[in-house]
């Protein structure tokens, strides 16, 4: 059993190394995007093998879905090929990378052995999460209780990081709303794709909702659900047109909702503050602490999902509305 796991580990890691080398050596940006899609599929497999279900789930949603799409949209702005630049010295980066790698290897020499149950990681903080979270937070998925309750403030920070990314993209690119599509006034008819997309979109949205509300029990939660939801809208944009999608979900509404999502998260904290607890202390939200935790996690996950979905769609819109200009 463990021999087969070891074999799978080795095969996956070897493929990962080869993919990385291919990414570094390639000059075609398009090939790099494709290979990094494979890279994230491989890393999701590795996370699965490491039994990190929630991480694998996020990697599945973000790495394979959104980031490929966004990187392609970026190439739409920048062009296919990496420009050849002779002037840049290759020695310095090489030395930096080698030193970093050497320090990392040196650092692993005294690292606690992987899968050893008496490691500090397993003995110090984790036991309480494992043993007490069902009674303290009351939901079966420990990862969700750590992310949303024990370390809920970090998650709020991450949501704000996503929001800050939106602010950056809006300031750099902006979203151009245009009434006519200059490149494709009449997009070529693609009946098979459109029928298929119409069939898929409800599925994807349904699944996003499942992930959103099932996060307490299984892998998933607001972040992943937001990404999956945004993928549905992206599919709609791709098979119909940007204008259709912008009529369906106008950017100004999305911008408001993205900010609102952050405020929902923060507002939960403020309410718990007003009710006499500490910031983000969900215990005080209801008479029964467990119920309070439940409500709190449900609300903040909703805020996370809202912000993430809106931000992803907006960033996608921003990229493609630029990409049209200079193909």
């Amino acid at each position: 059993m463990s021999a087969i796991n070891l074999l799978i580990d080795i095969v996956l890691l070897t493929m990962l190394v080869f993919t990385t080398i291919a990414i570094v050596r390639s000059r075609s940006l398009f090939a790099i995007v494709m290979l990094s899609g494979i890279y994230s599929l491989l890393s999701a497999n590795i996370f699965v093998v490491l039994d990190a279900v929630d991480v694998a789930f996020t990697e599945a949603a973000v790495g394979a879905g959104i980031s490929t799409v966004l990187m392609l949209a970026t190439i739409g702005i920048t062009g296919y090929e990496q420009k050849k630049r002779r002037s840049i010295s290759r020695i310095t980066p090489l030395i930096v990378v080698f030193i970093t790698g050497a320090v990392l290897v040196y650092g692993t020499l005294d690292m606690p052995a992987f899968t050893n149950p008496s490691n500090p990681v397993h003995e110090h903080v984790a036991p309480r999460f494992i043993e007490q979270s069902p009674t303290e937070v009351g939901i079966p998925n420990m990862v969700t209780s750590v992310l949303a309750s024990y370390r809920g403030y970090d998650t709020m920070g991450e949501v704000i990081v996503v929001f800050a990314a939106l602010i950056g993209v809006l300031s750099l690119l902006g979203i151009r709303e245009k009434k006519t599509d200059p490149v494709y006034t009449e997009p070529p008819p693609r009946p098979i794709l459109q029928v298929m997309a119409k069939f898929m979109i409800p599925f994807i949205i349904l699944f996003a909702l499942y992930v959103q509300f099932h996060g307490d029990f299984g892998p998933g939660g607001g972040f992943q659900a937001g990404v999956i939801f945004s993928v549905a809208i992206i599919l709609y944009t791709l098979t119909f047109s940007q204008q259709d999608a912008m009529d369906l979900v106008p950017p100004w509404v999305l911008k408001r909702l993205a900010a609102l999502g952050v405020l929902i998260y923060g507002g939960t904290g403020v309410v718990s503050l007003l009710k006499g607890g500490n910031f983000l202390d969900y215990n005080v939200l209801a008479h029964d602490p467990i119920h309070g935790q439940h409500y709190g996690i449900l609300i903040i996950e909703f805020g996370v999902g809202l912000t993430v979905a809106c931000v992803m769609i907006l960033i996608f819109f921003a990229f493609i509305s630029r990409g049209d200009k200079n193909p």
């Binding site: 693609r190 098979i192 794709l193 298929m196 069939f199 898929m200 599925f203």
Partner: peptide, 13 residues
């Protein structure tokens, strides 16, 4: 079901 629907469509496209 999903793969049976999407895979041929993706190949076709």
């Amino acid at each position: 079901v999903l793969l049976w629907l999407t895979s041929p469509v993706a190949s076709h496209a």
